[in-house]
């Protein structure tokens, strides 16, 4: 039963992740008075990219460059084995939140390495910014996890989802909502792949199927972040859960995409300053958690 549920979950995320990007593109288009692409557009893009041959740049460190997108993609799929999405059954699987975060970060790092391996100056800058933001983001995330762990007395996914609502958890969750926004690289935090400035950053030299996997990995990461967020608050069992889950995802997409459409990009320094403030908030939630509220 668990394996079937797992398969359903994986298929669901594989299908939904590009669709989610399609929904967000549509939302942004509507807010700009445009008709916008059909919500299946991202799927078509990926299918097309998969059929195109990859070209590696001459100077690239081939093994790392070629492997990076696949590693990122695989790491995120593995994370989805641990994190329940549509069906909650995979919850009984072994593993804990730390592992999920590690898998997610290794995906990010894989793309960063891929960017460095491409030897393109834009990719370097993009990768570099990614690392910059990633490091500060990590600090805040660590405090969120610690807070949750203290309150729930465990780090296993089984115990964590859904979390008990306490003051500290509430603060941590609010911080987490912001972190999800930042970690999914949306404007104004899409600095690592700012199109008008450094042309998709680390992904600049990728083409064809490798680009498809890299992009897919990014969409999966966004979905993973949303799933984590929803898991913290949605009920764990029952028929309502898949239903609520399916309804909540597009709603989150709409909210996040609307914010994205009406923001200007930050400079890296500004983004980092903001992240530091969030870290302080999460630290406070940790202190409150220790105090037992």
């Amino acid at each position: 039963m668990t394996w079937v549920a797992l398969a359903v979950n994986i298929l669901f995320v594989l299908f939904y992740a590009p669709l989610m990007d399609g929904i967000e593109r549509q939302v942004r288009a509507r807010l700009q008075c445009r008709k916008g692409p059909p919500i299946t557009q991202t799927w078509w893009d990926i299918l097309k990219l998969l059929r195109r041959p990859p070209v590696a740049p001459e100077k690239a460190v081939r093994p790392i460059f070629n492997l990076a997108p696949l590693v990122a993609f695989a790491a995120l799929l593995t994370a989805f084995i641990l994190v329940p999405t549509l069906l909650p059954h995979s919850i009984t699987f072994w593993g804990d939140l730390i592992l999920v975060i590690y898998l997610m970060n290794s995906a990010t790092l894989a793309l960063v390495f891929g960017g460095f391996a491409s030897q393109n100056p834009y990719a370097h800058i993009g990768a570099d910014r990614e690392v910059n933001i990633f490091l500060v983001e990590e600090l805040a995330l660590a405090f969120v996890i610690v807070t949750l762990a203290i309150v729930n007395g465990s780090l296993t996914i089984e115990k964590l989802f859904p979390v008990q609502l306490k003051l500290s958890v509430a603060i941590a969750l609010i911080a987490f909502v912001v972190l999800v926004y930042i970690a999914s690289a949306r404007i104004p935090f899409d600095i690592p792949e700012a199109e008008p400035e450094i042309v998709e950053g680390a992904l600049i030299e990728y083409s064809g199927s490798q680009l498809a996997f890299a992009k897919y990995a990014i969409y999966l990461k966004r979905l993973l972040l949303f799933s984590l967020l929803l898991n913290f608050v949605l009920p764990r069992n029952g028929v309502v859960r898949p239903l609520l889950f399916v309804i909540a995802l597009p709603i989150l997409s709409i909210i996040y995409a609307s914010i994205e459409a009406y923001c200007g990009r930050y400079r890296v320094t500004e983004a980092i300053r903001l992240l530091k403030r969030i870290s302080i908030v999460t630290m406070i939630s940790w202190v409150i958690a220790i105090a037992g509220w």
């Binding site: 509507r30 807010l31 700009q32 008075c33 445009r34 008709k35 609307s258 009406y262 923001c263």
Partner: peptide, 17 residues
């Protein structure tokens, strides 16, 4: 500010030909 603009865009609807 931005909320005014969001409302106006929604009110305007799609202008695409």
């Amino acid at each position: 500010g931005r909320f005014g603009l969001i409302f106006k865009s929604i009110a305007k609807g799609r202008v695409t030909e």
